[in-house]
Nucleic acid binder design. Structure first.
Lengths: 249, 249
DNA sequence: GAAGGCTTCGTACGTCGTACCAACAACGTT
DNA sequence: AACGTTGTTGGTACGACGTACGAAGCCTTC
């Protein structure tokens, strides 16, 4: 019946434990998550996670087949955080989709490592729940199936893309101290501009102090507000394309 | 003058060679690129690149300080491909921005590994050129500096986010053969839906063959066309927000 | 108590990035 | 023509990594 590999995904294999195992997958995931948050994704190694748990390295492999599965567990744990509580769920499609997107953005920028690993593990249970919520947002509209699916994908794509870049900017550039990578990059940009081969960029940034110029060009909006501008543009464009009603406010 | 580390970025260090070195950075980058295209990003190791070049492993470190710098070189080489030839540059902001975005999308989905590594190396010379082109697109508009910068960022974010997911779908799901990861994921989804906890998802996908359902929900559009729908929505939304004129057609 | 299988984890292999430093080769000087 | 200088190459080695293998420990059921 071609289903000899029903256990190809970690989600289809039962959590081990007919007796009392020392750990649970959830425990392992949250330990790994804590390490990633504190020291970055690169610090998450099998040895490290096991050590933090007070276990031998290979013990993890009783709960997980590969490190990728560990990462899948981590992603799934994160996706659990992006779910909107039932009673906060907006009734208008626009508000609901916005709320989901904004919440996802908040979580992703709070755990920037997630974006590096997000390449794998597309469909954990919490990912499905997230999708279900997005779909619920559109229940009141008369979009057909492919259009609903497309719109949800587009919003998620934008959220991920923006969160990825935002996190980079924030991680690398927060201090913007002398000698920081961002400082080096800004100074490099300045010298490039000085060659005169980037007239538009030159007009935008000018010739002054690159850090001042950067602040001026980014403008007064926070990264979060900049995201919201983009989200609003995308949703308004979608509303106009599919003739969806916008909320009153 | 606090610029003791002008060489923090590879771009600010001159290519080595007062005598005759065997290689150039460009050569190294394109070798690495070829390996990544043929066998994936994971196959790009210092040993492998050096071997392909007929050099000792450590020789690379004369041209590059770390592997991250090699990756920066690769990214920069890719960004070179996304530049639009002068004589093809559309005059209307909408057309120009669309052309740049679509071309970037094409390159990124053609080299999916780029998206995994794109986290680093934000500002190579070709990245600056790309930005200059985007800025040139908006020269005719009367957006102020922060708005121009924001709009360009938003479009790039969406391009990256969508290309990332598209590449995943294509890489993982092209064959969709029995036992493939995608097949396993689809079957997992099916069993989850069967629990009844995902009513909207159930209504969307139904209970039939998951592969058939997937095709029906994705709809008839190619990934590229789906991207264009999103791009168009984003740009229309931006046009409406900033009162920019749309092209006649 | 013995048997059996669930659960733990020590050892070891092949990979990776790269620090260190010895060897080699090309040039300017004499 | 010989030499010292210094640009360029790359061998060896170290400490990480993921994980295959299989031996041990322990709980549970007779």
């Amino acid at each position: 019946m071609a289903s000899a590999d029903d256990d190809a995904l970690i989600w289809t294999r039962p959590e081990p434990g007919t007796r009392r195992p020392k750990f649970t997958r959830e425990q392992i995931a949250s330990t790994a998550l804590a390490i990633a948050d504190a020291e970055g994704f690169a610090a998450v190694s099998m040895r490290r996670v096991a050590g933090e748990l007070g276990a031998g390295t290979m013990t993890l492999y009783y709960y997980v087949r590969t490190k990728d599965e560990l990462v899948a567990l981590m992603d799934n744990a994160l996706m659990g955080e992006v779910l909107i509580p039932e009673d906060e769920f907006p009734s208008h499609w626009y508000d609901a989709l916005s709320a989901i997107a904004l919440r996802t953005w908040d979580i992703l920028t709070r755990h920037p490592w997630a974006l590096h690993s997000l390449q794998n593990a597309p469909v954990g249970p919490n990912n499905l729940r997230h999708f279900e919520q997005a779909l619920a947002s559109l229940a009141g509209t008369d979009l057909d199936a492919p259009d609903k699916f497309l719109l949800i994908n587009l919003v998620d794509d934008f959220v991920h893309g923006n969160a990825l870049r935002s996190a980079e900017v924030r991680e690398a550039g927060e201090p913007a101290a002398d000698g920081s990578p961002v400082d080096a990059a800004l100074r490099f940009g300045q010298t490039q501009i000085a060659t005169g081969r980037f007239p538009h960029t030159q007009a935008l940034f000018g010739d002054g102090d690159p850090r001042e110029a950067w602040g001026r060009v980014v403008g007064p909006l926070s990264e979060r507000d900049r995201f919201r501008v983009g989200l609003s543009a995308l949703l308004h464009g979608a509303a106009s394309r599919w003739k969806l009603a916008l909320p009153d406010a």
